[in-house]
């Protein structure tokens, strides 16, 4: 094997390694999601859907649940939970409502993104029924009560006494329109009033 061939072969292998690492960079995104689901490090609530197994209600224990509503930038809607705080027994299913109101004259689409603090509690919060991550459309001046059924897993570590559940409301009207017409120009985002 001549030196030139050896060099070429090594260069190709190293280039292949570089390409694989580029792929690995993208792989980090789903890996991170898996990692978050296992450890709950970023407070994303991943448990949704009906409770399939029989869960024993722990009537002896009370967990304080705080509800928070946040509007992301430029979101003019009124958005709040009907009650800010409640006390629940782990294992029981609780129905709560958030209220949204669109004060503008036009139809708008929003999406609510949930987050839990402390993050380690996130994997013990099960949303049996939830409006989160769904596009919510509200006509101008319309209001809506949005139901949420949640259950706290009785396995919740004993040192956690309070769980905060927050919903951040994002305005996705432009994205919804953008799918039909031309993609949104990011350069226009900051310059126009």
């Amino acid at each position: 094997m001549s030196a030139t061939t050896a060099n070429r072969r090594l260069a190709l292998r190293l280039a292949l390694a570089a390409v694989l690492m580029f792929g690995f960079g993208f792989l980090l995104s789903p890996l991170y999601d898996v990692f978050c689901r296992v450890t709950g490090i970023n407070g994303k609530v991943t448990r949704t859907g009906a409770v399939t197994e029989a869960v024993q209600v722990d009537a002896a224990r009370q967990v304080r649940v705080q509800l928070i509503a946040v509007n992301n930038e430029g979101m003019p809607w009124g958005f709040r939970p009907e009650q800010h705080q409640l006390s629940v027994h782990p294992g029981e299913q609780t129905l709560i409502h958030y209220v949204a109101h669109n004060p503008t004259a036009v139809e708008m689409v929003a999406r609510a993104v949930p987050s839990v603090a402390p993050a380690e509690a996130a994997s013990y919060v099960q949303k049996v029924n939830c409006f989160c991550f769904e596009a919510q459309t509200l006509a101008g001046s319309a209001s809506q009560r949005m139901p949420l059924v949640l259950m706290i897993d009785p396995q919740l570590p004993a040192h956690i006494e309070t769980i905060t559940l927050s919903y951040t409301l994002f305005d996705i009207t432009a994205d919804q329109v953008g799918h039909q017409s031309a993609p949104q120009q990011p350069s226009a985002r900051r310059v126009s009033l």
């Binding site: 190293l14 570089a18 694989l20 690492m21 580029f22 690995f24 960079g25 993208f26």
Partner: peptide
């Protein structure tokens, strides 16, 4: 070789 592609990946994202 291990990390510059990861930087390229993140800016591509």
């Amino acid at each position: 070789i291990a990390v510059m592609p990861v930087l390229a990946g993140v800016v591509t994202m």
